[in-house]
Design a binder for these strands. Sequence first.
DNA 1: TCTAAAATTATCAAAATACAAGAAAATATG
DNA 2: CATATTTTCTTGTATTTTGATAATTTTAGA
Lengths: 257, 257
Amino acid sequence: MSGFTRYNKILNLFSEQRSSWTVLEISDELKTPSSTIYRIVRELVSAEFLESTAGSYFRLGPSFIKFNRIINLSDPLVKAGQPFLKKIANENPIESVNVLARLYGNKVMCVADYKTPFFKNNTSYQKGKLMPLIYGATSRAIIMKIVGKSLEDLLKQETFYDDNDKNTFFKNLKNDNKKGYCKTEGQVDKGLIGFAVPINNKKLGIEASLSSIFNSIDFHPEHEPIIYANLTSYALLIERYINQIFDDIQNYHQISS
Amino acid sequence: MSGFTRYNKILNLFSEQRSSWTVLEISDELKTPSSTIYRIVRELVSAEFLESTAGSYFRLGPSFIKFNRIINLSDPLVKAGQPFLKKIANENPIESVNVLARLYGNKVMCVADYKTPFFKNNTSYQKGKLMPLIYGATSRAIIMKIVGKSLEDLLKQETFYDDNDKNTFFKNLKNDNKKGYCKTEGQVDKGLIGFAVPINNKKLGIEASLSSIFNSIDFHPEHEPIIYANLTSYALLIERYINQIFDDIQNYHQISS
DNA sequence: TCTAAAATTATCAAAATACAAGAAAATATG
DNA sequence: CATATTTTCTTGTATTTTGATAATTTTAGA
């Protein structure tokens, strides 16, 4: 274990399910002497990536809150998409959750969301939570624009029930691509139906999606064209806006150098 | 530059003002050979703490969003305080921003907030933003519970206009402590008035505050007792709730070991 | 498409640092 | 206050990092 790995392995132990660890627990888990872990943890504490709490436990430190804010204020995707989520919600015919998501390694992560005040149930897509790559419209709208070797690499870790299952998956992907959007029901959350369109920017390396999620019970087929038109037009708007934000950054760098 | 410092120094270059850097810029800034920076940046990218974007720029990566979420779901202070912020807002007599803040090094950082829908202006206290230690009720309510050498160390970095200024500061702190809450107007944001009470938990090492911020123009002296009663009672509730959350964590660890 | 420039990765010996294990110190606990 | 636990310190040795340079890949412009 060397380089950043030795810090990252420790940080990645801290999860939703288990958010506090003692040095000895970390030492056991990583099979590394406790004197070493004490030193590394001390370093992470002084950078506020970890902090000590009662009972000789440690938990994630406030640095993450700080950097998360900087991302919210500066990430072109978040910056471009966030302001539109509420508008999309208001133009949808029924109560909805609206999600901006992106690739994160070989998972999908929501980076911004807006839920209408009276939406019942909760979607599993929450800011910062890693979601499956191949289930749900939000995820599928992202991968439907990825092709060739990139797609192969991404899907390498995924397991399909059988060959038939796999073929169906690719057929659906192709169909969605032709339609330009993706619709799934109950794949991630029972009782919810999701619609999603891709958001891409090759220059900036952005592979993302914009989606609206509804309670199945509220949804009627006549809503579909409105939802689709809504998503498509806003995705285009966001893509354009991303370019503009990027140009602004470029100009900023040129002026200040 | 050794250990975690070498990573932290690079990450800390990324700020609200300047959110993307090239390797050469980093190399210049840190006066470190570019071959070294290339290696370190590559490590941070593969851990998704940084990500590359167009024009050979790098920016903060999605790992921070992920860890930020885990903190939101697990930090005892956030967990205990977040659910009450909206309630406090609703019980306040006028439109308000309500903030849960804590010590972060020798600054103060907001970790959770709730703004009523029609609040005009914005407070500078935003989730993740570092704020001055000695100005504003939010900050002062935190340091008013810190004494002795800890307080001295904290204030070491602060500069006062003159001795008189310093004495006034300490006198106010003492007064606030006697009253049990802190009130300041226009210290951080012109046109805003803030009230704050401390939230402490020695066992858990929590040094925080709960505050309500109003537009000066909306505020009338007869509101003050209500605001104060509101803050005090919720702070107590939050302190109790923190203890309960901590006991739950303790139990969880005992059961699973 | 080709070409030149820029960005990134690879190499490797010297220098710096992390490591492990136990001892010592500090801190928490009853 | 005594004991147990947690944390830091110490040391020679092994490992990792570093940085100058070279090699390769990517990008941008003609």
